[in-house]
Amino acid sequence: MIAFQLLINGLIAGSIYALIASGFSLIYATNRFVHFAHGTTVTVSAYLLFALFSRLSLPFFIASILTIVGSGFLGWLMYVALYRPLKQRGSSNAILLVASIGLMILLENLMLLIFGADVKTLNYLTVSKGLEISGAVITPLQITIIAVAFVLLLVLWLLTRKTKLGITMRAVADNEELARISGINTDKVAIQSFILGSAIAGLAAILVALEQNIEPVMGTSLIVKGFTGAVIGGVTSLPGAVMGSYILGLAENYGIWFLPSGYKDAIAFVLLFVFLLWRPTGLLGLSKGTRD
């Protein structure tokens, strides 16, 4: 049944977007500026995985771990080399946004230069037959994606609620001034948010690379979708970002039931524009600083 297949597809897409949006939202909530280059973290991580696995022939598991470490490192580097110096000279959020777009272009083209424009595939999973569930087809990889997303988001939720790291991050997200006065080292927390958020992007990269293949511009589309999902649900709220991502995934897939499939991206763009204008605080209505 088509409607059910679309639901499945929507959940798959939503899971990917949720993985992107959660890392992005973590970084945004803690640092209060739009780190557009987050999508490029996914791109670079995917290429890193490709280099480790396909070129250097490392075992997949090892390559994956190294990729996640690498993406965390990249997050750290981006903060320390670009964002922190800019913040220290008093740059506004608008400047940081512009810088992040510049960073995105830089990294994307670096990947293009190093690896070329042709699409890369990871030949890890042999083409597996999809399983049939109630008339809809879903591959084991896709089930894995949904499962991983679910588990990760649960872990993330527990992390932000129950661990000292998470609680500290939320304190800074809530009120940076107050947190600093209370003795929290906000710079350390910023670094932690970038490392953690980017590591999540690294994990997302592994799954996306397996499911969709690798090309230099993949990050742009992913960050737009992830960002849209976060805005729909509520950018500073992790559950909101997740919920918004699934809504986007479903909207896209049900949307192309009626529209030509090329309109998939258009649906995301339009939703983004509409939500930014009419409900910037997202569906969960949590605000703080989006309209400054």
């Binding site: 500026f33 739009v34 506004s92 959020n93 608008a94 940081l96 946004l97 512009v98 737009v224 030509p260 090329g262 309109y263 991206d265 258009a266 763009f269 339009v270 983004l272 524009f273 930014l276 204008l277 910037p280 989006t290 309209r291 400054d292």
Partner: peptide, 27 residues
């Protein structure tokens, strides 16, 4: 559309606008 919006938020909305227009050119 952006009369009441400022700062980085304005930048984002205008960026979103360019995405929508691009999308129209494409589709």
């Amino acid at each position: 559309a952006v009369r009441k919006i400022k700062g980085d938020y304005l930048a984002l909305v205008t960026l979103g606008f360019s995405f929508v227009v691009y999308s129209i050119f494409l589709n």
